[in-house]
Design a protein around this nucleic acid. Structure first.
Lengths: 150, 150
DNA sequence: CCAATCCCGAGTAAGTTGCTAGGAATTAAT
DNA sequence: ATTAATTCCTAGCAACTTACTCGGGATTGG
């Protein structure tokens, strides 16, 4: 039941872009350094996020990445779905649901996995990048050594 | 963010034992057949569940496994923790928390993972095997072809 | 032009998953 | 006492996933 580094790094990188939202494109190299993530690896993740329409990129010198929309418009769930696949503890309760389980509506444990999925989605879809920034500020207020990276 | 077959099979097997609670030990072979799970593989899972004190076993002919306590005393969370490890979307928010993240209290995204963990635990710890049986009965009422296995 | 930067596909070592194989120990039934 | 049924234990393994690295091509500001 772990999120892999794809989701973790993705959220961290997007949070970084959110903190610097409106300041023009930010080079991959900068994000990777600030967040202590392998540059080449992050590149792949950013490629996926771009294809999913969550970030836009500017090529060439002085280029980089920026959020495709404002931080309050980007739920963490969108990032996770892009990099980790559907949010579901089990294949049989994916949203499109087509996959597999022949017992379908009649399975007793299925109800459990549906509830688990719903509670996970509730958290991830109601938390936006803006939410994370606000909460980061609150942490910062309590502790001045607060850091945005890691 | 998937639960592996360990957790899935474990819950199914425990549900099976719950349905037959109070009827004496049930042979692994029977559970495995009813739930369509590889016998040898399930054996390993049952070994873990026994060591964790969730089931008791009777060796020798006519032996088998039974729940160590009543279905309403066994939350699904206990089964999952035994077979899948701590319920936490990220290492840094495991309950004992010792592991790793040096930024600890100051990390903005950490709050997110904590909330996700809490919502997952809430579902898994408030759902017991008895809950699953009750919900199974409700499904059965609607659809007479309801099956306990799978 | 050229340096910075994004874009893309291939390769890969280490770890995880979902089993299988084989046999030792225990016990009820005969 | 023997046998058959059953749990217990360890080892092995093929396929898959993860978390990268490598090498180069395409694009663009200065």
């Amino acid at each position: 039941m772990r999120i892999s580094t794809r989701g973790e790094y993705g959220v961290r990188a997007m949070f970084d872009l959110a903190v610097h939202y409106g300041q023009g494109p930010i080079a991959l190299k900068v994000i990777a350094e600030r967040q202590a993530i392998s540059e080449h690896y992050l590149e792949q993740l950013m490629g996926n996020l771009r294809k999913a329409g969550l970030v836009s990129s500017v090529r060439g010198a002085q280029g980089g990445y920026q959020l495709a929309s404002a931080p309050e418009k980007i739920p963490v769930g969108d990032i996770i779905r892009t990099l980790e696949g559907p949010i579901a503890p089990m294949d049989c309760v994916e949203e499109d649901a087509s996959a597999g389980c022949r017992q379908f509506e009649r399975c007793a444990t299925r109800v459990l996995w549906e509830r688990l999925r719903d509670s996970m989605e509730q958290v991830l879809d109601t938390t936006t990048l803006e939410t994370l920034i606000e909460e980061g500020m609150r942490l910062r207020a309590k502790d001045d050594s607060f850091m945005y990276h890691i």
